[in-house]
Write a protein that binds this DNA or RNA. Structure first.
Lengths: 219, 219
DNA sequence: ACTGGTATGAGGTCAGACCAGTTGATTAAA
DNA sequence: TTTAATCAACTGGTCTGACCTCATACCAGT
């Protein structure tokens, strides 16, 4: 049915085409339509879709359809969960990584962030102050750290931290309640201040204290 | 709003069973045999196998068969390649991460490694001295760092570093040739010495110099 | 305005056929 | 006897078309 002489397996080709031709689409056509359009069988198309789903690039919903997303953290998270099935141990190693990576991210963010970035950071930071309930606070907290990671300009560190943070959203809720939103906010305040003024070492320092305090609280 | 009542999708169940019942097997039975044994269709079985392949738990070889492996780095590597398609930029961020993570790993390895670990490290280290050609040297170099990561007892850091290292095997070859195997060996020597004697700070320091030197060479 | 059916279209699973690499035994040639 | 070509029997890869389940919207009856 299909003609080309390919060296790469069909499925990987389909993956590429799906990504290339549907980057800007939200919901993509049904599997039957798609397979016909690409000139491949539905099974091959399905394998490709499944692959992209696992890689966090598509979301498949039974009875609804397939939509384009972009969650590069998904595969990392799956790996971490498999490698560290024990909750406590996972938490321990997460803290260790955060204590190592977050201060460095704060420093880089302070030294590399653009004015636009800094504005954005302050805005995100303000959201923690405005947070009414714990859920909002957790979300604002996550966003604050995520924004810093983006500013730091290292995709790898951002990826790791993002994966970790989302996996521990639950325990972060506990942390926030333990430390108190106010305390967290004032710690963020110091960090944001240092970052906005471009003071790398101070940002680093403030972050060390923040992460350490969080680590204490979750013990 | 949906929960509790629905059974898990067939494919995920198959994944679980495959992992559980074939953990100790090397090559698993053919797809037809397997699907019959599990009482599911070959397509469902194939989807499960593919899933595990992407997660680095199975290796599928056309015309040969499917075998059990354990390469948790695979999904992370795929993600990194997609997130950082540009070679130079990837290399830059990799160096940044290595400079941050490797020293900490060396320190932890020194402070946490068991006597058995230390013996193993020295043995691996010796292999770099015995290396006859560049390929062997690169392999020994990778193993040295991998061993340290294992000793440090943090799976996340080990995972990051492992993914990065394998992706940059080529450029590490260049580095090794640039610095010279002898120089690399003597840098490793200092690290190994510090780790074996349990001197964390020295190990950290030695590693900083080693990674820095490697970073210089690849410029 | 609510309830319950049902039509529709999505993904999920199935069966069986055929295509395409691998391997090793068999067989023909040196 | 040795060696090289061949073929048969695996393996996974792809295709087809059918049927099942799920989610949704629409509509008839209350």
């Amino acid at each position: 049915m299909q003609t080309s002489l390919r060296r790469a397996p069909l499925v990987t080709e389909i993956c590429d085409r799906l990504l290339r031709e549907h980057r800007a689409v939200e919901w993509l056509p049904g599997e039957r339509t798609l397979s016909a359009r690409l000139g491949v069988s539905r099974s091959a198309l399905r394998e490709a879709v499944q692959r992209l789903e696992i890689q966090g690039l598509l979301e498949v919903r039974h009875g609804v359809g397939v939509r384009v997303i972009n969650n590069p953290q998904a595969p990392v998270q799956a790996t971490l969960l498999r490698e560290l099935p024990d909750f406590a141990e996972r938490l321990r190693q997460f803290s260790e990584v955060r204590l190592l990576v977050e201060p460095e991210i704060a420093r880089c963010a302070a030294e590399r962030g653009s004015p636009e970035d800094r504005r954005r950071l302050q805005e995100v930071h303000a959201r923690l102050g405005d947070a009414t309930d714990v859920n909002h606070a957790v979300q604002a907290d996550l966003d604050f750290h995520r924004t810093l990671a983006d500013m730091a300009g290292n995709r790898i560190l951002a990826l790791m931290l993002g994966s970790i943070a989302e996996l521990e959203e639950e325990s972060r809720r506990i942390t926030l309640m333990g430390v108190g939103i106010g305390a967290a906010f004032s710690q963020h305040e110091r960090i944001a201040q240092a970052v906005v003024t471009g003071d790398g070492p101070s940002a680093r320092e403030a972050m060390v204290e923040h992460v350490t305090a969080a680590g204490q609280a979750s013990r």
